[in-house]
């Protein structure tokens, strides 16, 4: 008779952040956001945005905290974090470079810009998804249309939109990331 092997543990889709704590000022700001909606659950996206803005990613503890705050089960938040591309489940680089991949930008040379970043930072230009440098300073990612096609190619460095990016301009953007 074959021996029954215990199942392998399913890897946790979220990274743990044992020291996660929400300071009072942030919590009261979030409480304010919840009042914008007749149903608490609607505030999920806005709360996750606020958490990610503060901590850089959405951790297991953060999901549990938000779930408690909105009287939801953690799965209700997990399904959002795993669906919406903007949420990070692990920390990303201090500087997050999102290069637009879609048609107008591709025609204007965004693949070259993406390759330039990857080659300069020692990343793989053909890999899927976001890639972070070993020192945790940069994350480079191809994203879909950023709605600025008239000034293609465009990219976002953290929250700043850069338009008509040339290789020279890309070098300057990288240089400006201290």
């Amino acid at each position: 008779m074959t021996e029954i092997q215990p199942l392998e543990a399913v890897p946790n889709p979220l990274q743990s952040q044992p020291d996660f704590a929400v300071p009072t000022e942030l919590e009261s700001a979030l409480d304010q956001v919840i009042t914008h909606y007749p149903q608490k659950r609607s505030a999920s996206l806005m709360l996750l945005h606020a958490i990610q803005e503060r901590y850089g990613f959405v951790s297991e503890q953060a999901v549990h905290w938000v779930a408690g705050k909105l009287d939801l089960q953690p799965i209700h938040l997990l399904e959002l974090v795993t669906f919406y591309p903007m949420f990070h489940r692990r920390p990303v680089g201090k500087w997050h470079l999102k290069v637009c991949r879609t048609l107008s930008c591709a025609l204007a040379g965004s693949y070259g810009i993406h390759r330039h970043f990857c080659e300069t930072l020692g990343l793989d230009a053909h890999a899927h998804g976001p890639q972070t440098t070993k020192d945790g300073k940069f994350t480079v990612e191809f994203v879909e249309c950023l709605a600025a096609c008239g000034t293609a190619p465009v990219l976002m460095c953290n929250e700043t939109l850069h338009e008509q990016v040339t290789e020279e301009k890309a070098r300057q953007i990288l240089g400006g990331c201290a």
Partner: peptide, 24 residues
């Protein structure tokens, strides 16, 4: 209300689901 990078949220009923705090 801010979305989070999903094109399908432009579809009006997807948008409504998203605004209700669900997958769009």
């Amino acid at each position: 209300h801010r979305g989070a990078g999903a094109y399908i949220c432009g579809e009006e009923t997807g948008l409504i689901e998203s605004l209700e705090g669900k997958r769009p």
